[in-house]
Design a protein around this nucleic acid. Sequence first.
DNA 1: GAGCAAAGTTAGACGAGTCTAATTAGATGA
DNA 2: TCATCTAATTAGACTCGTCTAACTTTGCTC
Lengths: 166, 166
Amino acid sequence: MVYNKYSHSEEDYLEAIYLIGLENEAVRVKDVAQAMGVTMPSVVAAIKSLSGKGLVEQEQYGSIELTNAGNKVAQDVYKRHQTLYDLFSEVLGLEPEVAERDACQVEHYLSPETGRRLSKMVEYIRSCPIGDKQAIFLERFRQYVKTGQKPEPCCGCPMNEAQEGL
Amino acid sequence: MVYNKYSHSEEDYLEAIYLIGLENEAVRVKDVAQAMGVTMPSVVAAIKSLSGKGLVEQEQYGSIELTNAGNKVAQDVYKRHQTLYDLFSEVLGLEPEVAERDACQVEHYLSPETGRRLSKMVEYIRSCPIGDKQAIFLERFRQYVKTGQKPEPCCGCPMNEAQEGL
DNA sequence: GAGCAAAGTTAGACGAGTCTAATTAGATGA
DNA sequence: TCATCTAATTAGACTCGTCTAACTTTGCTC
C-alpha cells in the first residue's frame, strides 16, 4: 500500500545532504540546518535516525556522508524533484518559485510508476519541436492557458498516417 | 510560503466527510473512520479540532456536518483530487488504483496556481481530438511510452498557420 | 598552550496525529 | 422499562519531528 520506505522528512534530509555534497567538500550539520530551515538539534536527531537505518554516516563532530543506500534514495528523490520542476515550470509555465516549492512538496508522494510516466511525458513534450519554434503541444497549450480558446482539431497533419503502422 | 491553510490530515477528513455526505443522509463517526482507515477516537479528535476552526459541526453523539467554510475546503481538495486522478489515469495511462492512491497523496501539496494549470492541461489534452480517434497528443504519447520511439516533428499541420494570429 | 567563538550535541518539552482500553449514551427488542 | 448491543467519547500513551536552553568539542588566534 505504501510505496515510500522513508518518510517525507527523511527524504528531505537525504536530498539536502546530497545537494550540499555536490557543491561542498564536506557536509556539515550547520549547512543542512540552513538548507532546510530547521535548527541544528533537529538535524542531529535526523542524522542519528538515518544513521541507524544505514543511510548516512557521521563520526562525532565530523562531517556527514551518504552511504550507497542513502545516495540511491537521495538521487531517486532528486530525480522526481527535477521531473516535477520541469513539468511545473516548462510545461505548465509556472513561476520558478512556485514550481520549486510544489516540486519540493510533491516529490515525496509520487509512486515510482507515476514518476516514470511523468518523466516520460515531459521528455515527450520536449521532443516534439517544430523548426525553431517551441513544441506544438507547448505552443498551443500556452495559447490555451492565455486565451482560454480551445485549439481546433489538429487534423490533416501528415505524420498521423505515417505513424499509423508503429 | 505555505499555501495550505489546513494540514494534510485536516483536508483528508474534510474530503471524506464531503464524499460520505454525497451518498448518505447523515455522516457518522463510524463511517468516517471506516473510509479513512483510522479508529473512531481519531475521528472524534479530528472533528473536535475541525469544529474549533469552524469547518464542521456536530452535536454530541450526533451526525457530522460541514459548515460552508468546510464545504468549500473539501470541494477544493476534491477538485484537485479529480484533476490529479484524470492526469494520472487518462493522460499518463496509469492503473486506476495507482492513479487514485497518488492523487490522494498529492492533492494536499499542490499550490492553487499549479492545480489550476494542471486542470487546464488535462482539459486541453482532452479537447484536442482527431475524428473518432483519441487526441493526437495522447495517441502519440501512449505510443512513445510503449515503444520509446520519439515522435517525428508534427510539421505541416495546417492548423499551425491558422492559429498564428490568435 | 590558553582563551574564545563557532559548531555540534544533549536534555527536555511540545504539538500533531495516531492508537488501545475503558466508559457513556442511544437505540432496540423482549 | 429494562437488558443489551452498537456507536461515540474520554483517558492516557506513543511516535515523529520539531523547538529552546544548556553543555561540550573543535579549531583558530594570540
